[in-house]
Amino acid sequence: MNIHLILQGKGGVGKSYIASIIAQFCNTKGTTLAIDTDPVNATFAGYEGLNVERADIMDGDDINPRRFDALMETIFNANCDDVIIDNGASSFLPLLSYLISNGVIDLFKEYGHTPVIHTVITGGQAQIDTLAGFVKLLDHFGQNGEKLVVWLNEYWGEVVDRNIPFDRMPVYKHNQDKVKAIITIPDLKHETFGEDVAQMLKARQTFDEAISSDTFNFMARQRLMKVKNHLFDAMQTHLAEV
């Protein structure tokens, strides 16, 4: 069983969108369990078509051990191919600390599961913060067989530093052996593709739901199909053997 954890300390950068994409892709390959642990903005749980379960693991600013134990019980008892867990920005540091101090990732591997850590880096104003979140994950994951997947969300602009793209930045070059894959969510023409995707996300629809919906006209459905195919092809290329 693959256990996908979407982790990033910066909010509003597309974590839940990425969680939904992963869940939709995994649904084409087998059975899934989707879980939303965001204590503030449970966006992922709003996707009714993905049957996302809500798991409240926080008690104030800290992880509640009993609630986390219940989450682990749910995961280990899951009879599925992939588990997708979306986590909120406010619980990023407490959850990261709890995962490390309790050896959770090693426990997954010990029982034959494959942990896959996903994070997102954006262009624009949030680039510095999302890069910092990426560095935080590098301190703990990737060196012991964990798979780290970086999603570049270009909605707010390309991820570049003084014209140097992410895959040539020192922070990546010095750690590329820890990164399983880089998947790019391309900058979309906001008046067409971008507006279509934004409308789909606002309605908490999957690609298939939106494409089959009368809410979108013919050309909008074709554009959404093109976006879906781009993302699914990238995941098939980079995550097929996960």
Rank of each mutant, 00 (worst) to 15 (best):
C80R: 07
L50N: 06
I21K: 03
D161Q: 09
S212K: 14
V83L: 01
I21P: 05
G46D: 13
H118I: 01
V120S: 02
W151M: 00
F232Y: 15
D86F: 03
S91K: 04
G88A: 06
L99I: 15
K147E: 13
E110P: 00
D81C: 06
D62Y: 10
T119Y: 02
I3L: 09
E146Y: 02
L93T: 15
V104E: 11
A240V: 09
D82Q: 11
F76A: 08
F166C: 03
D69W: 00
I100R: 13
I63A: 09
N153L: 01
E241S: 14
V150W: 01
G60F: 05
Y155F: 05
K109N: 09
K189E: 14
G123M: 07
S97N: 15
R67P: 00
L50E: 03
Q222Y: 07
I128F: 04
F218R: 12
I105V: 15
D106F: 05
R67M: 10
K173A: 08
Q222K: 14
N153C: 00
H174M: 08
N163F: 06
D61N: 14
V120T: 11
V13S: 06
I117S: 05
H4Y: 10
N41G: 05
N175V: 08
L188G: 07
V40A: 09
Q176I: 11
S16R: 08
P65H: 11
D233A: 14
H4N: 15
A78D: 11
Q24L: 03
P39S: 06
K173P: 00
K173E: 13
T32P: 01
Y111D: 13
A78C: 09
I63M: 11
R221L: 01
L188S: 03
D86L: 02
G88Y: 04
N64S: 14
V135C: 02
R221P: 10
N64D: 15
F166T: 04
V171E: 07
T192G: 01
E73L: 08
R221S: 04
A132G: 08
Q205M: 15
Q205A: 05
E146Q: 12
L224K: 07
M235R: 06
L224R: 07
P186T: 10
A78G: 09
K10S: 10
K29P: 03
R221C: 04
G124C: 06
S90P: 00
M200I: 13
V116I: 15
D82P: 05
I22F: 02
T192D: 07
M200V: 12
H238N: 14
T114I: 15
S90G: 02
S91Q: 12
F166I: 05
V160H: 08
M72Q: 14
V150C: 04
D86G: 08
D187K: 12
L148S: 02
L95T: 13
L7K: 10
G103F: 08
T237P: 00
Q199G: 06
R168W: 04
Y98P: 12
L239K: 02
M235K: 05
C26A: 14
A78Y: 06
T215M: 10
I182G: 04
D187Y: 13
Q236L: 08
E146M: 07
H174A: 12
